[in-house]
Design a protein around this nucleic acid. Structure first.
Length: 834
RNA sequence: GCCGAUGUGGUGAAACUGGUAGACACGCGACACUCAAAAUGUCGUGGGCUUCGGCCCAUGUCGGUUCGAGUCCGACCAUCGGCACCA
């Protein structure tokens, strides 16, 4: 009988005692760093989604181990952060107690699933020996000028009562709790990630990552190429600088638009409608994202009457407006409006009766305009008259020096002209904004900065780290804009590290994403309290060979981790700038076609299933569900089906091979030989396919191949010799072990193995033995399958043709028609065209 | 609106560079074992015709390339995800 509990317990103990999963980090010969995204320990326990990712990752890690690599597969807990804290608040317990409990629970569960974790090197972000170095990272950033404080409109979550980074606002809502996020003007600490925009983008060209995720980052970084153009303000020394991706349309710029906040930088004394302007500015500053959405993006704006700008290319005087459809944070915060060729400007110009001047002729570009040919002439007329907006490429008209040029050339020429006459220059802008890392919360590493009345903001000295997170009973966020630590007088009051005078500590903590941006470095140097990183191990093990995790982190964790790695390289701590050479993004797991959620009550708790079916069955089932890239649909019936397979597999090892031979049917020698020949072929082709599938990360098909072999062996076991049965079982034990490690060990032992199966070599196959000697040759007539005949695999075109034409059925089909052509695909088919 | 992914039996899904569509499972049906049930095993299982030899139709829809298309090209539809006044 298959008693999964007994087996799992047995091997857990053996693994723990043998240290088989703790490689020598300094001496390993073939290092393979197998990383999976460490979980944040929610109090509900390990989610089946976590397990889904972990078992796939582990399966590959174990496969690599069997291939002879020294695999390092660490695990830890991303325990600092808003999510854990919110949960503690909800259940009315202190976060430190909840944290202690969840750590225990999580590690217990993580043991159960049977991964080859190195339990001697865990990392918990909320422990002093870790966050000390997170603070160290902040200091390094600060020293390099990459951590700085600025007052800016930031995202404020009304429920979490803290600011958030742009990446943590998902469609206007808080990434953690789903509450609407509003804009607030506050002074906060930022990391200068925008300085790395270009590099972050460039390296995407070569890193081996899931395409989807790379594209997500590319779009988020959002590079635009274009030009900066200066528009002089009439009767003033000021210039208004705009950014545009279409400098070729500059002759069609009929007005300028400034973001409302930008207008404050201008001299408004000459503006005749000052009151109106000021009112618009203050109103738009108060507007939240939500209000903007409610207004359905209806464009509004106010003209700065009395102010005029000059189009530097044709010297025409044009009006200046402020409108909140121009964004302060992007480009220069000002735009040249070309209503004829920009939808937004067009809408605005229509509403306020501004001039629309067509400067791009679309007549030769019907396909670009995506318009059916019958309507095209009419539409061209409308565009030329400025009654319709055209945003694509075309030929420049009404545009002085670039008249007649196609968009691309026009852009090139105009930029040359701008640069020559010092009116502007080529420029690239990014959508990416700096990373706001302050959090007005309790459960995080205090930001190691001190504000002195005399010296301003001064960093804590490195030797004084960590800045300990003080224990406090009431750790709830209060929404004051300051973190809870502000209420701990002993903590706040300190001395300036520079002048020794009275000073105050920063009371915000840092974003939990800072914690997770470097944890994979720390795994290589746990238990060292002298330095955060170990240079020589870093050289040996980094970059991570395979990183397995959720695609949803495309613009969160994965972007931050890349950024931090680049900074550490620039600081000289490491000599590579991409942390993960290969990233595999897995899909989401759903239940019966629906997303799992507490409200639906359809959450799959892995514990229950492990209890009932055993970890191996659950592992196998999770990997059999479908393509790991696309996620899977959990169904209880399917889980039960996999359990049946496991029991069948178990039975294969229950019979004594010699006892089996007694029941062996009396079949003739020749037949017996044939059967074992088939058996050998099955073994070799299974090894071949499973190896190939694992290399392709096609876990589900690899399992299917193993099932085929198991089914065949189950059927034929009593017809096979003891020798063969034994050989097959040994191979099968190794093949199954990455997927079902407990069973792998048990089977290996049952077939005479003394040591762990994971000290074995992955079985090899011989190509010629894996191949069939005979095939079903498909005979097609005019591309339609008509007949299959058994032939040798090496049959030539002539032989195949001859054989095909001998078949009665084929003769009938061809009858007296003439054969026009015969196509032969070796080892597959012959197609007779008549 | 823009970008991306996906669309194949009753269900989850396979199909390497264009070459037997539906591997492997789930479910269902029949049979065997059983007094019976469960468990297990064996066989069958895309749809429609059939003179039981086979034939026709089928990979979201329409068209194209090809001896041959789930796979390549073009247009469209649906679902899901990301971004969203980014100049």
């Amino acid at each position: 009988m298959y008693d999964h509990k007994k087996i799992e317990e047995k091997w857990q103990k053996k693994w723990a005692g043998s240290k088989i999963y703790s490689p020598d980090l300094d001496k390993a010969k073939k290092p393979f760093y197998n990383l999976m995204m460490f979980p944040y320990p929610s109090a509900e326990g390990l989610h089946v989604g976590n397990m889904y990712a972990f078992v796939h990752s582990d399966c590959l890690g174990r496969f690599k181990r069997l291939e002879g690599y020294d695999v390092f597969e660490p695990i830890g807990l991303d325990g600092f952060g808003i999510h854990s804290e919110n949960y503690a608040i909800k259940i009315g317990e202190h976060i430190r107690d909840v944290s202690r409990r969840t750590e225990k629970h999580f590690y217990q569960q993580l043991h159960m699933i049977g991964n080859q974790y190195d339990w001697t090197r865990t990392v918990e972000t909320y422990k002093e020996d870790y966050y000390k170095w997170t603070q160290w990272l902040f200091l390094k950033m600060h020293k390099k000028g990459l951590a700085y404080r600025k007052k800016a409109p930031v995202n404020w979550c009304l429920s979490c009562k803290t600011v958030l980074s742009d990446e943590q606002v998902i469609s206007g809502k808080c990434e953690r709790c789903g509450t609407q996020v509003v804009k607030k003007q506050m002074a906060q600490w930022f990391f200068g990630i925008t300085k790395y925009a270009k590099r972050l983008l460039k390296n995407l060209n070569w890193i081996d990552w899931t395409e989807e995720v790379k594209l997500g980052q590319k779009n988020w970084i959002g590079q635009s190429q274009g030009a900066l153009i200066d528009f002089p303000v009439l009767e003033s020394k000021k210039k208004i600088r705009v950014f545009t991706t279409r400098p070729d349309t500059v002759f069609g710029a009929t007005y300028l638009v400034l973001a409302p906040e930008m207008a404050e930088e201008l001299d408004l004394s000459r503006v005749s409608n000052q009151a109106q302007v000021k009112k618009y500015i203050s109103r738009s500053k108060k507007k939240t994202e939500q209000q903007r959405l409610e207004e359905k993006r209806e464009k509004t704006g106010v003209e700065l009457r009395g102010l005029q700008a000059v189009n530097p290319l044709n010297n025409e005087k044009i009006p200046v407006w402020i409108a909140d459809y121009a964004l302060k944070e992007y480009g220069t915060g000002a735009i040249m409006a070309v209503p004829a060729h920009d939808g937004r400007d067009f809408e605005f110009a229509k509403k306020y009766g501004l001039e629309i001047k067509c400067v791009v002729d679309p007549s030769e570009y019907r396909l670009v305009a995506k318009v059916p040919s019958e309507d095209f002439q009419e539409i061209v007329e409308e565009i030329l008259k400025g009654k319709k907006c055209y945003e694509y490429k075309g030929r420049a008209i009404n545009s002085g020096l670039i008249n007649g040029l196609e968009t691309k050339q026009a852009i090139r020429k105009i930029i040359k002209y701008l640069e020559k006459n010092k009116l502007g220059r080529r420029a690239t802008t990014y959508k990416l904004r700096d990373w706001c890392v302050s959090r007005q919360r309790y459960w995080g590493p205090p930001i190691p900065m001190i504000e002195c009345e005399e010296c301003g903001w001064v960093p804590v000295k490195e030797k004084d780290l960590p800045v300990r997170l003080p224990d406090m009973d009431s750790f709830h966020p209060d929404g004051s804009g300051k973190g809870p630590l502000n209420k701990v007088a002993d903590f706040v009051k300190t001395k300036c590290p520079k002048c020794g005078g009275a000073a105050r500590r920063e009371t915000d903590v840092s974003d939990p994403f800072v914690d997770s941006s470097w944890y994979f470095f720390r795994y290589l140097n746990t238990n060292d309290d002298k330095q955060p990183l170990n240079k020589s191990r870093m050289k040996k093990w980094m970059p991570v060979d395979l990183y397995f995790g959720g695609k949803e982190h495309a613009v969160l964790h994965l972007l931050y981790a890349r950024f931090v790695t680049m900074v550490l390289k620039d600081l000289g701590y490491i000599d590579f700038e991409e942390p993960f050479s290969k990233f595999f993004g897995h899909g989401l797991i759903v239940k019966d076609g629906a997303k799992m959620s507490k409200s639906k009550g359809n959450i799959v708790n892995p514990d229950e299933y492990i209890e009932r079916f055993g970890a191996d069955s659950v592992r196998l089932y999770l990997m059999f569900l479908g393509d790991a890239r696309q996620g899977g649909d959990w169904k209880d019936a399917g889980m039960a089906g996999m359990f049946r397979f496991v029991k069948r597999l178990w039975r294969l090892y229950e019979n004594d091979v010699n006892a089996l031979s007694l029941t062996r049917k009396k079949i003739k020698g020749a037949e017996k030989g044939d059967l074992e020949k088939t058996g050998i072929r099955k073994l070799h082709s299974t090894i071949k396919k499973v190896t190939r599938d694992l290399n392709r990360m096609s876990f589900n098909t690899a399992i299917a191949r193993i099932m085929e072999l198991v089914n065949w062996l189950g059927r034929e076991k009593s017809n096979l010799s003891p020798d063969f049965n034994n050989r097959a079982r040994k191979i099968l034990a190794v093949l199954i072990s990455p997927f079902a490690p407990y069973l792998g060990e048990e089977f290996w032992q049952k077939t005479g193995g003394r040591e762990s199966v994971f000290k074995e070599k992955w079985p090899e196959f011989k190509e010629e033995l894996a191949r069939k000697k005979e095939i079903e040759l498909v005979i097609q007539v005019n591309g339609k399958l008509r007949l299959k005949i058994l032939t040798g695999v090496n049959i030539t075109a002539q032989e195949a043709r001859k054989k095909a034409l001998e078949q009665e059925r084929i003769k009938e089909l061809i009858a007296d028609k003439k054969i026009k052509k015969v196509i032969f695909v070796k080892g597959r088919l012959i197609n007779i065209v008549i």
